[in-house]
């Protein structure tokens, strides 16, 4: 079990309110990702759930029981920290068994669990090393191992991949997703990287300045962002926003079109501009288009290799059903 609910939870450090009243339901077995720009309160929210910070108000329940005042150890949650927080003077084996030893579990069971975890995480050959002798990815796995042996009701991850290089990050992303498939335990995962959020989550919680902007599945957020912030945050490259006359023509204060929802042509189209920088990824090409009279730059994604060069005139047509309309308050207009 691992159902977590926050009701009216607030957090202030002194006079600074980091989390204004906030409600959130996390279902058992879900993979929930908290995503938002740096400093928006993701870690704080996670630490409130973990019990490492006290709430300033509101209630946290875990599996229906009030956990607001319980100490971290009593909540049955396991956390993987950004710095891994391994114990440097203990071997990998002792790191992983630390929570079990603290719980006074018998030796045979400890051994069984460590070996099972090491097997899953490919750490069997490293059990007698110190964390200092491991690579970043291996340390990450030890931290995960230390979390899974406890068989917690939910896992909390705070930007666990941000210290890894790009290639390793993709690999670990898959491993964590696989782990979730296998364990089917609730996982709460914090990241500022919307790609991680989109690829891993069952449910994404988009945060800005401590407020929840939208909660939904990755595709819901992609297809129907509730407001302009979510629209701009989810999706890569970012959505193009256009204001002014062109927006008014669509009956909105701002319209948004994703780079992949613009059809390009050399000869004709609704909008046109001059190609600036182009980024060739092989499978796709991104053009940054200037002088459109609509916005400073418009990013366009074209599939495959398209023959526009710097300075060429390019014509673009938004797909009509893919134009997002936002009111003056930034909220979506259906």
């Amino acid at each position: 079990m691992g159902r977590i609910a926050l009701r009216n939870v607030t957090k202030a450090f002194g006079d600074v309110v980091v989390i204004p009243p906030l409600d959130l339901e996390i279902e058992d077995g879900e993979f929930v990702v908290f995503v938002g720009p740096s400093g928006c309160g993701k870690s704080t929210l996670l630490r409130l759930i973990a019990g490492l910070e006290d709430v300033s108000g509101g209630q946290i329940t875990i599996d229906g029981e009030d956990a607001t005042g319980s100490p971290p150890a009593k909540r049955g949650l396991a956390m993987v920290f950004q710095s891994y927080a391994l114990y440097p003077h203990m071997s990998v084996r002792r790191n992983i068994t630390f929570p079990l030893r603290m719980a006074g579990m018998d030796k045979a069971e400890q051994k069984r669990r460590v070996e099972a975890a090491a097997d899953v995480l490919n750490l069997t050959d490293y059990l007698d090393r110190r964390p200092g002798q491991l690579s970043g990815g291996q340390r990450q796995r030890v931290a995960i191992g230390r979390a899974i042996v406890r068989e917690p009701t939910a896992f909390l991850f705070d930007e666990p991949l941000s210290n890894l290089d790009a290639a390793l990050r993709v690999g670990m992303r898959l491993e964590i997703s696989e782990l979730h498939e296998r364990l089917k335990t609730t996982m709460i995962y914090v990241t500022h990287d919307q790609v991680e959020a989109m690829t891993m989550a069952d449910k994404i919680v988009v945060l800005q300045a401590g407020r929840i902007e939208q909660v939904g599945s990755p595709l819901e957020l992609y297809r129907t962002p509730r407001n302009q912030f979510v629209a701009g945050f989810i999706g890569s490259p970012k959505m193009n926003f256009i204001t002014g006359e062109e927006a008014a023509r669509h009956g909105a204060a701002t319209i948004g079109v994703r780079p992949e929802h613009l059809d390009v042509s050399e000869t004709e189209g609704e909008w046109s501009g001059v190609v600036g920088v182009s980024e060739h990824l092989g499978s796709d090409t991104f053009f940054h288009v200037h002088d459109t009279g609509l916005a400073e730059t418009i990013t366009v994604r074209a599939s495959g290799e398209v023959g526009f060069r710097h300075g060429d005139r390019i014509h673009m047509t938004p797909r009509p059903d893919q134009v997002h309309r936002f009111g003056p308050d930034g909220l979506r207009i259906e």
Partner: peptide
């Protein structure tokens, strides 16, 4: 001392 180490230990049930 990295405070996250102490927090990790706290979550691991160490008094």
């Amino acid at each position: 001392l990295d405070s996250e180490q102490l927090e990790a230990a706290e979550m691991d049930g160490a008094g």
